[in-house]
Amino acid sequence: MVEKLKSLLSRFYILIIILFLYSPIAVLIILSFNDSRSRVVWGGFTIRWYAALLHNSQIRVALGTTFLLAFLSAFISLVIGTAAALGIASMKKRSHKLMMMITNIPMLNADIVTGIALMLWIIQFMPLGFGSVLIAHITFNIPYVILAVMPKVKTMNISIYNAGRDLGAGPLRAFFELMLPQLSGGMISGFFMAFTMSMDDFVITYFTKGAGVNTLSTMIYGEIKKGIKPEIYALSTMIFVLVLVILMIMNNMPAKEKRKGEEERGNVYD
């Protein structure tokens, strides 16, 4: 009886999730293929909004900016965040705790506060533009990289470094060839997390971008004020699919490592 109720409730829950979360996205995707400007009339299947999207130079530029920004900020915060994780891990317990708390603050902080604060700060040194958005994105991306890399740093085997030195590798070589690969899992997921965070961001970008620079999210926001065009459906669909793909890649990686871990455990007994 209880079991039946449980399964009934869990099905109900899934139904609600689908209804409220995914059906709007499904509607959006369907509309992006609708050969009609109306939101309620199905005018047949078309891909002309996607074609229009490619011909819209404003969107093309914004798309380019978004990817460049996401890639650069993810890459730079990967370098800084990995170095930071290594540094923090080797700190004494108290400073370690303090640093991790400081790391967590930007993630919990309201975006609008971070956005305004960064704008006020950056404006003291340079005019707002692509550079300022990049700096802002790197700033909020670093904590995500640290959080992704830190567990790997903690399980890193230091004697492997010594073994490398022993076999003739210099300190730098031993670090880059033997230690860094141990962090690769965390670094890759940290990179993708930062990449999606950067692509996803609207508020902080909006405050730090200045005139003339647009990412997809700020551009769409501007467009919506003039009325929603079907191209935006197509664009949103593309972003959704892209994020979905990245998410699937990220979710698949830890699964692989888990399997490897099980192999190790299995071998203790032979």
Binding site: S159, L167, L178, P181
Partner: peptide, 13 residues
């Protein structure tokens, strides 16, 4: 001089 460490320390990757 080369060392064989207690925890083997083979390169896992």
């Amino acid at each position: 001089v080369h060392t064989v460490f207690q925890k083997y320390s083979l390169f896992p990757h």
